[in-house]
């Protein structure tokens, strides 16, 4: 495995906090406190933590959809102030346009983004490539409501990829799927991400999940978060060989890592379950 800490960070979170003011009571709530983290080019980083620890808020700040109350979020050294096509997002509920077919959803970015729009011929080639890549061939003229959950997920993934972002942000993308589909899509995700490619050619991925197994299976590093306020407790290196296959899950190395993470968040996960705020 190549060393992660040698390169300049692709994404840098520097001392970010997020404070909410509850409109009704005027009470201030600190959702995220002093989070700092560097993510390097080509890295696959998973963020795990109990419900309400601010995982999604961090992702939204990197996407440019939310601003930190304090601290800075930067990409390649430049502060992030707004959403941009260089940072693609796959949302938990997919957010596919219901009035557009699979094909039209996938070509949305290249067709309508503000800069570097593609012409019809180029777009056609690109869209075909991504439809094949996520195995939606034959379904390109269907509307989202005609697709299964797994197909919708793949369509959302292809829509983000077709815009050719440098960084891919994924917010619990497999949470709404059944267990079998989830396992299959995890392997698919690694294949599409390009496990065999050199690091410089891979996309940088930041992946939010509840699933500890999922995080260990996918990630180069796992950031474990704690609650009230949300902080990064530990960042664990996952030194499992790539390409990773289904059989990896049964190995003792895998189990040890997963258990270590579980012990870290166990108490807070219980609290979040029992004492819902």
């Amino acid at each position: 495995m190549e060393a992660l800490d040698q390169a300049a960070p692709k994404i840098r979170l520097d001392g970010i906090s997020k404070e909410y003011i509850v409109p009704r009571t005027g009470q201030r709530t600190l959702a995220i406190a002093d989070v700092s983290l560097d993510i390097v080019q080509g890295e696959f980083l998973c963020i795990v933590g109990p419900s309400g620890c601010g995982k999604s808020t961090i992702l939204n700040m990197i996407a440019g959809l939310a601003e930190p109350s304090a601290g800075t979020v930067a990409m390649d050294g430049a502060p992030i102030r707004a959403p941009g096509s260089e940072r693609g997002v796959v949302f938990q509920d997919y957010a596919l346009f219901p009035w557009k077919t699979v094909r039209e959803n996938i070509e949305f970015g290249p067709r309508f983004r503000s800069d570097a729009r593609l012409g019809a011929a180029e777009r056609d080639k690109l869209v075909r490539h991504y439809i094949d890549l996520v195995s939606l061939t034959g379904a390109e003229h269907k509307y989202p409501h005609e697709l299964s959950g797994g197909m919708r997920q793949r369509c959302a993934f292809a829509r983000a990829l077709a815009n050719e972002p440098e960084v891919l942000l994924m917010d619990e993308p497999f949470a709404a799927l059944d267990a079998q589909t989830r396992l299959i899509l995890q392997e698919e995700l690694l294949r599409i991400w390009g496990e065999d490619l050199p690091r410089a050619e891979r996309k940088t991925v930041i992946f939010i999940t509840h699933g500890i197994d999922e995080a260990v299976f996918l990630a180069d590093r796992v950031a474990v978060m704690s609650n009230h306020p949300g902080r990064i407790k530990t960042v664990m290196d996952i030194d499992l060989p790539r390409p990773r296959r289904e059989s990896l899950r049964a190995t003792s190395e895998f189990q040890t890592l997963a258990d270590e993470i579980w012990q870290l968040i166990r108490r807070e996960a219980y609290e979040a379950t029992i004492d819902r705020r």
């Binding site: 693609g88 949302f91 949305f108 309508f112 983004r113 503000s114 800069d115």
Partner: peptide
């Protein structure tokens, strides 16, 4: 969520009005 999705794809405000809000 649809408007956020369009913004993260790098689509400008007026285009969002035409391609997301109107339909």
């Amino acid at each position: 969520g649809l408007i956020r999705a369009a913004r993260t794809l790098g689509v400008g405000r007026l285009t969002i009005l035409r391609t997301v809000v109107l339909p």
